[in-house]
Write a protein that binds this DNA or RNA. Structure first.
Lengths: 169, 169
DNA sequence: TTAAACTTTCAAAAACCACTGAAAATTCAT
DNA sequence: ATGAATTTTCAGTGGTTTTTGAAAGTTTAA
């Protein structure tokens, strides 16, 4: 396998992974390209490499900027915009976790909290079971929330070191 | 808020959560209904509660059975099939993690391994950078893999206890 | 064996989502 | 100011996924 082929595979794989994780395929592919390129890339180059339209490239680059995974850079004497992607894989993972937590986990936690308030004095079987299930889900969601919060603050090597030891000890 | 309203909200929320996580909305909603019901449910009851067609109900119930989140039960003297959903939230989470790991993480790990073999002797900057990025992603993916494997074996309270202590100590 | 009860299948329709491409808006150099 | 270069927008198109509903298939009781 040659390097160009390997790059293609990486970009494809990143796109597939992205779409399984709620990230637009093209957005993930653009990000993959940028991870692999030390040099900033222009919209033209991205359109070219992925064979996509200008509109598509533009929209997804902006979305990546919104996610703070890509930033604009200005090239000396050049008029067009160039972009660089975040290359620290740990930072990328944390950033994705942060955004998805805000968009998905936080609202669920809020809702579960609300639902728990309801109907708390009912003593019939149905209500008790409902309370138990909501409570169980809420507990798990809270723990996941704390885990993610912990990850945000953690340094990568420390975190994996501790986790691995947890399971071997 | 009355209990019926609360149930509706829970089912809706579960559906939304599911679709953000690559699980069909209806499939997630059916599972939510089953978590909340102590009694087994029939296809008819599910169609009714969610206002969906028979075909849709049938397909998604079977998918849930494939995921081992729901099982068929036979009701004494009843002809039609009834179904019960897994209610242990930790087991549910582990089961979803297991299936998604097999479908998504494992193939990615395999591919990254393959890609790493390529082009290893090249000494130019581009190749070196490519090798580094692929290696970094691979390392993270391996660690996530080990974490998930650890979770499979862990008992819930033990796991969260250890994790929480990790971050507070 | 028959027929009613029930389940499964699947082609077509509907709903959903991403992409294109060209026009409008913006930026920059002269 | 003017126009060339570049970016942004968005209505329309096209592709994918989900859902429907009715027909085919299966099971059970009599």
């Amino acid at each position: 396998m040659q390097i160009e082929e390997a790059k293609q595979k990486f970009v494809q794989a990143w796109g597939a992974l992205g779409s399984q994780w709620g990230i637009n395929k093209t957005m993930a592919q653009i990000h993959a390209l940028m991870m692999l390129s030390k040099e900033p890339l222009s919209t033209e180059e991205i359109m070219e490499e992925l064979s996509i339209s200008r509109g598509n490239a533009n929209m997804n680059i902006r979305e990546l900027i919104d996610w703070s995974l890509v930033s604009k850079v200005f090239k000396q004497g050049e008029r067009r915009d160039y972009f660089v992607g975040e290359k620290d894989v740990w930072k990328i993972a944390k950033q994705v976790a942060k955004i998805r937590k805000t968009r998905e986990l936080d609202p669920i936690l809020k809702l579960l909290d609300e639902i728990k308030q309801i109907d708390t004095d009912k003593k019939d079987e149905e209500s008790k079971h409902f309370q138990k299930m909501v409570g169980d889900v809420h507990k798990l969601a809270l723990n996941v929330d704390r885990l993610i919060e912990g990850i945000f603050k953690a340094e990568e090597s420390w975190f994996w070191d501790k986790i691995l030891k947890l399971f071997t000890k």
